[in-house]
Amino acid sequence: MQRKPLKLETQRKILGYFFLLPIVVMLTVFMFYPIVKSVVMSFTNWSGMTDDWEWVGLNNYIRIFTNMPEYWRAMKVNVIYALIATAVQLTLGFLLAVLVINMRPRWQSFYKIALYLPVIIPAAAISVMWRYIYTPEYGLINQFLRAIGLEELCRAWTADPDTALGAVIVTNTWRYAGFTMVLYYVAMLDIPKDVLESAQIDGANRWHLIRYFYLPLTRGTTEINLILTITGCLRAFDIFYLLTSGGPGTSTKVVSMWIMETAFQSYKYGRALAMSIVLFVIVVFTMVIFRLILTPREKE
């Protein structure tokens, strides 16, 4: 009689592993193998076009740290972009979530969709649209400024190194604020409504609710958003490539663009892989740091 439950359990286990098999195979083929191969090839002088390569040891990595000033200039652009874009996006996403969650259900549905739409629009379409918005002669921004008598504020937004990075940040925030908002919105749904109502009865205003309820009770979501946004910004490519092409000059040239040029223009695939590994390590390190900073507070 005792054997039957064992057989059933074993059967289930085997079946479970069997169902896991396809995804494990896919992950191995399309993720783990390329990662391992990339790490290995980053120690070679592989051109990416033939199988003729030689082991060069740490040469690629040494070069990155000693003879590639443009890589670190681009990294600086990435870091500044990550810090500012994260702060703006998280703040905006949070405030939008607070607004939306306090709306009537009908309007909630409308604004959730409307604010999330930019997330699913392709980067190419967004870039084309925003390039025209930023055009100094007939772009929307400068036309509006002229219309309200603020012509002195008109700029060549993507041609001025002082404003180009800001222009990319605005575009990226417009694109992803909806994503951040949705994550916060879902977290705020878990806050018991009676708790908020009790607080309001006790005299709490909107600011008190945000400060004492919404913010602390969505800390987990803040951590997730922070990590997702910062790591995404460190790896940014599409918006920069399509909106400013890294210009003017090098003011918006990011690390991913250098990696692409090294691989496909200089035919130094091995070195490009080394650059990617360095970026990967920096991204992981950033994640670990933020996790360490934020986790102790959660334990409290």
Partner: peptide
């Protein structure tokens, strides 16, 4: 020789100079 992205680098340097 293989100029790689030399043209891009010198072009970017020139733009940086014009805007600086």
């Amino acid at each position: 020789y293989n100029t790689g992205n030399k043209g891009d680098l010198t072009g970017q340097a020139f733009v940086d100079y014009c805007l600086s």
